[in-house]
């Protein structure tokens, strides 16, 4: 029973160019195709995937997001500490800020992800039910049904992936920078005062040594 006229777009088959035209892809298109084939066939990547799956069978998006943030935070902290234009205490404060902006949200992220996993499943089931009902009741032809099922699979996967992305991004890019900045600044000020006190003790000793000489 067709409820109403349908518009179904199959986004997966949009490339209807002939092979001759496809071979004339721009350079970056050929690079991306070569990259895709290399990743697909790579045995090292496959072994790494098996190892990760053996350790954690939940959605792995969060682990990749964490690794990306780790590299970024390390880059920030390392360059800040190396920066000679910044004073030592300022660079220490910044580096502490940047390190805490990785460590704290990472711990919070894994905890929060575990806590909301039940809710994420419920949202997924609700969305799946809505899709199922709509597809079952829409009166589709066989081909339209095939396309709808393929797209429904991708959309369902997207629910849990988006939940993981939103959780970690919220913590890394919003909560941590807003909440951790002040405590990190105070920690940096405390460290700076300690450094200043150390310098003040070192200066009289240095002058005494010069006077003796």
């Amino acid at each position: 029973m067709r409820i109403q006229p349908l518009y179904l777009s199959d986004n997966t088959n949009n490339n209807k160019k002939s092979p001759a035209v496809q071979n004339q892809q721009p350079a970056f298109g050929r690079i991306s195709s070569a990259y895709g084939e290399w990743i697909l066939k790579s045995k090292r990547i496959r072994k790494a995937s098996e190892w990760i799956y053996s350790k954690d069978r939940t959605n792995a998006t969060k682990h990749f997001a964490v690794v990306g943030s780790l590299v970024t935070s390390f880059a920030y902290a390392y360059n800040t500490l190396k920066n000679k234009r910044l004073e030592k205490k300022n660079s220490n404060t910044l580096a502490i800020n940047q390190t805490l902006n990785f460590v704290v949200p990472t711990i919070l992220g894994y905890t929060l992800d575990k806590l909301i996993s039940g809710h994420t499943k419920n949202w997924e089931y609700k969305f799946a039910a809505r899709l199922e009902k709509a597809i079952a009741s829409a009166g589709l032809t066989h081909e339209e049904h095939e396309i709808a099922l393929q797209r429904a699979t991708k959309q369902l996967k997207g629910v849990r992936t988006l939940a993981g992305i939103a959780t970690f991004t919220f913590l890394y890019r919003y909560l941590a920078p807003v909440a951790i900045t002040k405590p990190a600044n105070r920690m940096g000020e405390w460290l700076g005062k300690k450094l200043d006190a150390k310098k003040e003790n070192e200066i009289p000793e240095a002058r005494m040594e010069v006077a003796k000489a």
Partner: peptide, 8 residues
């Protein structure tokens, strides 16, 4: 299926 949209 509002607005002539398909189920997905």
């Amino acid at each position: 299926l509002k607005g002539g949209r398909g189920p997905v």
